[in-house]
Nucleic acid binder design. Structure first.
Lengths: 225, 225
DNA sequence: CTCGGGCGTGAGGATTTCGTGAGGACCGGG
DNA sequence: CCCGGTCCTCACGAAATCCTCACGCCCGAG
């Protein structure tokens, strides 16, 4: 049972780490929004304890980005007590909202309640298409048996596409997931990285069969039938 | 979406009934512990809002009794703010715990968060007519099984029409949705794109059966039957 | 019958979007 | 300091899409 703590206050992090660690939870820490997303992708936690007041991305943006690809329970911890803040966070996809200060016992009970509800993470099967195999959890890609190196950015894009087989993923969603919501008009990035991914994964990169472009809209991963 | 309110305070019941009823929830009420269990069995609510301080059975007993046979989300509402009370309720099987007083907005947001967990977001149904199937969410259209390629503008128009089956959609609405409010007199665009859509989707494009024109008014999508 | 308005549709040209190569900025490790 | 790897900028030809324009049809009014 792994818990990601996303909080920039060292004292809070320390307290949470001790509280949760003592209960046998495996604790991972991130200190800003981007780090939280990176850690979430890298470690696939079973629950996220998220402080809203971090530098970088806003808490809301982190919630939305997470919800783009995972159903992991999100417990928001915040100093803001206004009901509007709670409504925003919950509607963005958070599962619970606790205001500081709070007791360790209460937090633990809420963590237990959330993990009880959580759908047991189905082990992600390896995605295969053509002579390529991609293990998202292990961050391992291979082609005709031999490993293929992908850069971090390539992984992020590929992951979003592979998690929505047959669905069109809009340029906006991809850009938001990978670079953040303020980059939604930099479509050139996508062209560049899709080109790279095809070069590494497609049988005939100039005639893509799996990673398709829909002009003016976005991209689509089409698995073999 | 049916919600069971278990509370013995008539004023609170009244407030909750109004708040929830106005949002379209179907509200059922019980005023003591036994009544709550009876109502739960009788009406099978999709969510329970439970006051801990009811006469008869204690709140904890109600939670445990419910958990004996149902996974319905339980949102506890209580005047008791001690963390011990929260821990007890949550560990007994409650999913959330809100202390009085609370704002209606917050309660509603928590209700939404809980029901979201209970029933994973329902996928939009696929719209079918003739030998055509359209999945708006996935941006996937097919005809007799093989995919049909639509341009972004075609998608936007089709989406508006398909979301209002059997209803007349005025040219003004269509133009505003797709090109913006300043294009409401460029009706030529609609003729052009409707023609394209029919060519791609209608069995006999020159005798439309699903995407009908209402001269001088607008267009109408008529599903089978 | 004639006429005119609204509609459908084909044919390009205008515009936007894509794919891709080349190369510079940045960074952490030897 | 150099170096490999990664990310990003820039540029340009190709492709897809959008829009303009022209023409013909249908149908009701006069």
């Amino acid at each position: 049972m792994r818990i990601l703590i996303a909080d920039d206050d060292p004292q809070m992090v320390r307290a949470l780490r001790i509280t949760l660690g003592a209960r046998g939870y495996d604790v991972v820490v991130a200190e800003d929004g981007r780090g939280a997303l990176d850690q979430a992708i890298a470690t696939h936690p079973d629950l996220v304890v998220l402080d809203l007041g971090m530098p970088g991305l806003t808490g809301l943006e982190v919630i939305e980005a997470l919800r783009g690809w995972t159903d992991v329970p999100i417990l928001v911890v915040s100093g803001r007590t206004e009901s509007w803040d709670k409504v925003e966070a919950l509607d963005a996809g958070a599962d619970d909202y606790v205001t500081k200060p709070f007791s360790a016992d209460e937090l633990l009970a809420r963590v237990r309640a959330l993990s009880r509800r959580a759908t047991p993470a189905p082990d992600e099967p390896v995605v295969e298409f053509g002579d390529v195999a991609v293990d998202l959890a292990a961050r391992l890609a291979s082609r005709a048996g031999s490993p293929v190196r992908l850069t971090p950015t390539e992984w992020r894009i590929l992951e979003v596409l592979l998690r929505h087989p047959d669905r069109l993923v809009t340029r906006e969603i991809l850009l938001t997931e990978v670079w953040g919501p303020q980059y939604t008009s930099d479509t050139g990035y996508l062209r560049l990285y899709l080109s790279q991914l095809r070069k590494k994964l497609e049988p005939d990169p100039s005639n893509p069969r799996y990673l398709l472009t829909e002009a003016g809209m976005g991209y689509r991963f089409v698995p073999d039938r």
